[in-house]
Nucleic acid binder design. Sequence first.
DNA 1: GAAAACGTGAGAATCTTTCGCATTGTTTTG
DNA 2: CAAAACAATGCGAAAGATTCTCACGTTTTC
Lengths: 138, 138
Amino acid sequence: MENQQIKRAGLKVTAPRVKILGILEKSRKRHLSAEDVYKQLLSQDEEVGLATVYRVLTQFESAGLVCRRNFEGGQSVFELNSGDHHDHLVCVKCGKVVEFVDTLIEERQSQIAADKGFRIQDHSLVIYGVCPGCQSQD
Amino acid sequence: MENQQIKRAGLKVTAPRVKILGILEKSRKRHLSAEDVYKQLLSQDEEVGLATVYRVLTQFESAGLVCRRNFEGGQSVFELNSGDHHDHLVCVKCGKVVEFVDTLIEERQSQIAADKGFRIQDHSLVIYGVCPGCQSQD
DNA sequence: GAAAACGTGAGAATCTTTCGCATTGTTTTG
DNA sequence: CAAAACAATGCGAAAGATTCTCACGTTTTC
């Protein structure tokens, strides 16, 4: 269960942390900004400050529990780290996120980095588009 | 010459605009943040406000002259739009940028978007790593 | 169960980016 | 080429996102 993940990260199990992790788990389809998480906490009548949300998210990130993404638009969004590296398809209208993994692309990336002499550390691939649901609303 | 590009964008040819475009042209190897551009202007004893730098960069972006990228880290960086869509290899140590185009990856992306029913609009692929020069400094 | 260490909320502070507005510069027109 | 017409600039203020500070509350340790 969630508490174990928090403990394993070397963090104490506190109400804000458990709540935030729970919110992230319930929102795998739509990655959340710190503000989004904060609003959900408020709507659940939780007394959590925005600063704490940022703190906890940053701690979770360091612990490898969540990933921070810098999509377009001012704020970062966070998603639960499912372990496997994956890329994103983001709907520019509704914000819906679809994750995918493509071995072929991963291989080409390693190849390209090697060609240029780079020692690869990480990568980020985001495809922006309009999802099926939003297309029908045009 | 540069002034033509500015005019074609429907903008008046002013000192700040010409200078900023010139700075971007000289820095194709390392994409610049608005702050970076501003500092270079100052070091050239140009009287340009930071607000103008942002304004001009945004205008250039709308005009398709430059592209704004949201790499990791708080600020956006800008690069001259060379017309062709390309992706990036960024050195996490020195900030050096290498651009590349890979048809195979582009094709896979279209394929993936199609599979998921998305109407693709844009995409962003960034590989983070350590460049050859920085590797030898370890 | 007291001390030490950690976690929290609230607001201040910081950083990046944008805005408002009086002033200045560029282009157009005659 | 001067004046009108309007766009562009610089400055400081403002906004939005994120982090920091600090006094207070909770957990852990022994």
